[in-house]
């Protein structure tokens, strides 16, 4: 189990300090796929950096640390202090810009053996890599190629191969498929899932795509303005969200056969510089009351394994009913046609 204890991650900027992750406490069970969602700037990527242990100027950890729940070669527990030495041994990373994350002028096989973990046994490792890549749907010769000779999907499979080859306990994937077309996206995600099932690693997946989260993840973490607003099993969270923000994220997701107009989220997240008092989501929340604007709701376990940071978590299912009674697209289209006709007659 990975424990995050009151993580506060701060960026030092010219305007001063700003907390991109502001007090996150979490327990992530082993061998699950956990999704992280939220709008841009909510702190997802910063949280990933903190978990990966990539903390360096301008990012610093003002409070808390991560306990990974496994030990290193010397039997010491691995925490934020010493995680850097375990990179790609016990924790690996699939980057966002996977298309350009390979050195263009060096053969892929040479990029497979410049990890500190492979120092001094490159030949042996390379033979293992050659045996390993067919599992990822790649020909063994693919590692002899230069990156530009492979397609986007193949390059992404190489990144997945790198991230899984050392069988790390934890794999972090920051929007690993954003640059790929939908068909390739799906095959890559399924591949990652297969490998995860076989090796039993914990995967943390950041994605804007709620559909991907629904299909792939077992647990979901919803972030808003540097805070966790909801954390629950994916199925529960999608069926009966306990935070209005989660509900509105899900509602923006189209479903086949449902022609109701999608509800976008009105407004935008608050600037990290001018955080509103009380609940950070209150200015955009249909349930917000005076209490919300005054007092920040803590992340509480409202039901077993269901965490939500909302004063009115219990009312969210009701809100869902109200929102679903919205007008159908066909009705809106009818209204628009009527309106156009009216305008034309008046002219």
């Amino acid at each position: 189990m990975i424990r995050l204890d009151n993580i506060v991650a701060t960026y030092t900027t010219q305007r001063g300090h700003v907390n991109a992750v502001d007090g996150v406490t979490l327990e992530i069970p082993d061998s699950i796929v956990m999704g992280i969602a939220g709008e841009s700037g909510c702190g997802k990527s910063t949280l990933m950096k903190v978990i990966y242990g990539d903390i360096g100027f301008p990012l610093s950890l003002s409070s808390g640390m991560v306990d990974y729940g496994f030990v290193n070669e010397r039997g010491e527990p691995v925490t934020t202090e010493n995680i850097r030495r375990e990179w790609f041994r016990h924790i690996s990373y699939i980057p966002q810009s996977s298309m350009s994350s390979l050195n263009p002028v060096v053969r892929i096989r040479d990029q497979f053996v410049d990890f500190p973990a492979t120092a001094g046994r490159k030949k042996e490792v390379l033979a293992q890599v050659r045996a390993f890549v067919p599992k990822l749907g790649l020909p063994p010769e693919a590692i002899d190629a230069y990156p530009h000779q492979l397609s986007g999907g193949m390059r992404q499979r190489i990144m997945v191969a790198m991230a899984t080859f050392f069988q790390p306990e934890v794999i972090l994937a920051d929007e690993p498929t954003t640059a790929l077309d939908v068909v390739v996206q799906k095959s890559i995600l399924l591949l990652l899932l297969d490998l995860q099932k076989e090796m039993g690693n914990t995967i943390m997946l950041v994605s804007h795509d709620m559909g991907v989260h629904y299909q792939i993840t077992q647990k979901m973490l919803i972030m808003y303005a540097a805070k966790v607003v909801e954390y629950a099993d994916t199925d529960d969270l999608f069926q009966r969200p306990l935070h209005p923000y989660t509900l509105m994220l899900i509602n923006s997701l189209p479903t086949i056969g449902d022609d109701r107009a999608r509800h976008g989220l009105p407004g935008s997240p608050p600037s990290l510089w001018e955080m509103p008092q009380g609940c950070r989501f209150a200015p955009r929340c249909p349930l917000a009351t005076a209490l919300c604007r005054k007092e920040e709701p803590p992340l509480l376990e409202h039901e077993r394994g269901r965490f939500s940071a909302c004063h009115y978590a219990a009312s969210v299912p009701e809100l869902k009913q109200t929102l679903q009674a919205g007008p159908r697209l066909s009705e809106i289209a009818h209204d628009t046609a009527q309106l156009t006709a009216d305008v034309e007659r008046d002219v």
Binding site: W87, P95, S100, L102, V105
Partner: peptide, 29 residues
């Protein structure tokens, strides 16, 4: 600052490796 050098850093490669095999090999062209 290119993505492949940043990724090499996250791989845990040494400064020396990154400076020669990643930055120099590309910047020398």
């Amino acid at each position: 600052e290119d993505a492949y050098v940043q990724f090499a850093r996250l791989k845990g490669t040494t400064d020396r490796t990154r400076m020669t095999n990643y930055v120099f090999r590309n910047a020398m062209l």
